[in-house]
């Protein structure tokens, strides 16, 4: 099956949502799914809503940061990186996301890592999962007006977020 957005690549990401009893399915390729924010919440892109992408490609250009923007990690601009063909530091991958993503797709035909995760990375995803669960519980607690429980959950979340504060690129 081909991606419903670009219609070019194989759809590998499948979503199903039920709104008011109506089931909708979405089949996207990795690249579009990532662009739409379905796969990587931690790599925030400028607001690419589905309609804005479809209606105007011109908008796409205007939201791109200027190539002269400097990476906060190494102080390099994308123009410099492009010239040498070498990234400056690990933060560059995030800073110049808009340029890197299509480049990676061209080189590898894929954009998302599926291989080995370092031990620290595993810990990180575990904490991310825990955070997600806690936030859901917090939502429920607030809805049910269980404020005492909500406060406890909030503190737990804050503490975890602090623990999570080992160096990451995100």
């Amino acid at each position: 099956m081909l991606c419903q957005l670009c219609g070019q690549r194989e759809a590998t990401v499948h979503f199903k949502e039920v709104i008011n009893g109506v089931t909708r399915e979405l089949h996207l390729c990795e690249v579009c799914a990532e662009k739409e924010g379905f796969l990587s919440k931690s790599f925030p892109l400028p607001d690419f809503s589905l309609p804005s992408l479809i209606t105007g490609l011109t908008e796409f250009d205007t939201v791109l940061p200027k190539k002269e923007k400097k990476c906060p990690g190494c102080g390099l601009s994308y123009t410099q990186i492009e010239k040498k063909g070498k990234m400056g530091c690990s933060l560059c991958y995030q800073t110049f996301e808009e340029y890197i993503s299509p480049l990676l797709e061209k080189i590898h035909g894929r954009v998302l890592h599926r291989g080995k995760v370092p031990r620290r990375g595993k810990m990180r995803s575990k904490i991310e999962r825990q955070l997600y669960q806690l936030r859901q519980e917090l939502d429920k607690a607030v809805k049910k007006e269980e404020y005492e429980r909500a406060a406890k959950l909030r503190d737990k979340i804050k503490k975890l977020q602090k623990d999570e504060n080992f160096p990451t690129t995100n």
Partner: peptide, 22 residues
Amino acid sequence: NYAFSPQRGYLTSCPTNVGTGM
């Protein structure tokens, strides 16, 4: 402490090595 991102994997100098770095 390796430079790693869950989305891009092991981050390398050249984008041709990123991911597994292998």
